[in-house]
Design a protein around this nucleic acid. Structure first.
Length: 251
DNA sequence: GTTGAGCGTT
């Protein structure tokens, strides 16, 4: 898409990766290519996008063939106003495949680079953690995260349970309230009846398209569809010392 | 329709 119609990285043997930050969410590689290409030979321009929405994340990667050109672009494009926003251009530090990058230059597996890389790593673990979180959360915008957190969406499962009223622990609570339960139920009924959405059959489907799946409903119902259990054979260590485990716990 | 610190893909 953003690779000029090509797929995947073209070729990174001796290219300098530049990181462009603070760009607008509408900025595309095509917009950055002519801008950066003016200061040097741009090998490729890539803009990470969200896999869910496909929207730009707000930064792009520009690959230069020579460092002098890249440096020049940084000096010229860094701080430039783009679409009403000041963009920041700097050398990329971490490669897509954790390759050895020095000063934004992508070098092949060099033995000497490895030794130096060790002492030249001020904060490598910080990045690893960030990447893991990124893949899991996939949320780039902090505001959005805060927004989601603001909303105690509770687990969808809990919501469903409240409506289904088929929970065992809830039963105890209901008994304590007794009449409250009746009233609540009545209100729920009234509320449901008042729901105009019920009028539309299409809306009903929109309410929970992936909820209440007759096929895998059982699995989703369970809090832990995947667990270590199931195949104890997978853990030979347990079989080796099943007894001492308790001893250690006591101590 | 929103957002704004950061580091990447078939």
């Amino acid at each position: 898409m953003s690779h000029f119609g090509r797929s995947g990285p073209p070729d990174i043997r001796d290219t300098y990766s530049l990181l462009v930050l603070n760009i607008t969410f509408r900025t595309t590689a095509d917009d950055l290519y002519p801008l950066f290409d003016k200061y040097g030979k741009v090998v490729d321009v890539f803009i990470p996008r969200d896999r869910r929405t496909g929207d730009s994340r707000g930064f792009a990667f520009v690959r230069y063939k020579y460092a002098d050109e890249a440096q020049k672009a940084i000096d010229k494009l860094d701080g430039r106003m783009l679409d009403g926003r000041e963009i920041m251009v700097q050398f990329a530090k971490y490669g897509p495949n954790a390759e050895k990058i020095r000063k934004g230059k992508v070098m092949e597996s060099s033995s000497k680079a490895r030794g130096r890389s060790r002492s030249r790593s001020p904060r490598p673990r910080h990045r690893d953690d960030y990447r893991d979180r990124d893949y899991r959360r996939r949320s780039r915008s902090r505001s959005r995260e805060r927004h989601d957190r603001d909303r105690p969406h509770r687990s969808e499962r809990e919501r469903y349970r409240s409506r289904s009223r088929s929970a065992s622990p809830d039963r105890i609570k209901d008994r304590l309230r007794g009449r409250d339960d009746v009233e609540r139920r009545s209100a729920s009924h009234s509320d449901r009846s008042m729901s105009p959405a019920r009028h539309s059959p299409d809306t009903r489907r929109s309410i929970s398209p992936r909820r209440t799946p007759p096929s895998r409903g059982r699995s989703d119902d369970e809090h832990s569809p995947r667990r270590d259990n199931g195949s104890p054979d997978d853990k030979p260590v347990d079989s080796r010392s099943p007894s001492p485990a308790k001893s250690d716990a006591d101590v």
